[in-house]
């Protein structure tokens, strides 16, 4: 059983401390954790700090993993680099980092398995430059999975995907988390998807923690008003899934009044 908890985490971006004081309870194997918050709230920065790619105060407490630095893997948002590499090579590359030149049959079997699971076998020998945005995201996911991390930090993995692919990828990640005992953090803007697939949620705004806990307890009408400045209801649909129904964009006063209320 792998667990992770953040203890008073902060992150420097350049010389500026852009994320501060993020403390969470312990998350365990098999859980999906949605990391939500407005644009530029500090979600990517938090992920990079957790993965050890940015410096900062506090500690990331990982227990039950014997993989050391390789326990946590960060999957950045898609970059549009056009290296002259096939999809297969780009996934092999992720697997072989830090090792020798030779490629074992075991490496290739693992890659084949992951590509099949994500259903990208048909684009295996296309060049990266020929892929659509959605296909690139899927390749990124494959690159991350072949590194076999215990904790996966996915930065907006579904942002370039159509609805079908979004559902497919999130359901797949849920399955992977359960089957492999991974903890999957997903930075995501679609709160309905977050409520559907994530067990827990972390809310970040202006670089600090605004809420953490079971998804349905964290994503509330009050949170939507405070953090996203919208008036909305959260109601179950006819099949029982909770849905956000947006009524209106809250006026400019909405935020300040809630801030005043908190301060009081």
């Amino acid at each position: 059983m792998v667990t992770i908890a953040l203890d008073d985490i902060g992150a420097y971006y350049g010389r500026r401390l852009t994320v501060t004081g993020v403390t969470t309870p312990r998350f365990s194997s098999g859980e999906i954790v949605a990391v939500i918050g407005p644009n530029a709230a500090g979600k990517s920065t938090l992920f990079k700090r957790m993965a050890g790619l940015l410096p900062g105060p506090g500690t990331v407490q990982v227990e039950g993993s014997g993989k050391g630095k390789r326990a946590i893997s960060y999957m950045p948002q898609d970059t549009s680099a056009n290296a002259v590499l096939t999809v297969y090579e780009s996934i092999l590359l992720a697997r072989k980092q830090g090792t020798g030149w030779s490629v074992s049959n075991g490496d290739l079997v693992l890659i084949d398995g992951v590509m099949q699971a994500i259903d990208i076998v048909d684009i295996a020998f296309r060049n990266l430059g020929e892929l659509s945005g959605g296909q690139r995201q899927l390749v990124s996911i494959a690159q991350t999975l072949v590194r076999e991390p215990d904790i996966l930090l996915m930065d907006e993995p579904t942002s370039a995907l159509d609805l079908h692919r979004q559902m497919e990828v999130l359901a797949f990640m849920q399955q992977v988390a359960r089957d492999r005992g991974m903890i999957v953090f997903i930075a995501i803007h679609d709160l309905n998807q977050a409520m559907r697939f994530a067990d827990k949620a972390i809310v970040i705004e202006h670089g600090s923690l605004k809420g953490v806990g079971p998804t349905n307890e964290v994503i509330t009408a009050q949170l939507l008003r405070d953090v996203y400045r919208i008036d909305a209801r959260i109601e179950p649909c006819s099949r029982g899934h909770l849905q956000i129904i947006v009524d209106s964009v809250a006026g400019p006063g909405a935020r300040s009044s809630s801030t005043v209320a908190r301060a009081a």
Partner: peptide, 23 residues
């Protein structure tokens, strides 16, 4: 260069991606 072969190839995928691979 040869001992960094995988890392140098990863750099062509972008700095963030390479860093996420531990480069």
């Amino acid at each position: 260069f040869a001992r960094h072969a995988w890392a140098l190839t990863a750099i062509r995928l972008g700095e963030d991606k390479a860093a996420s691979f531990g480069v």
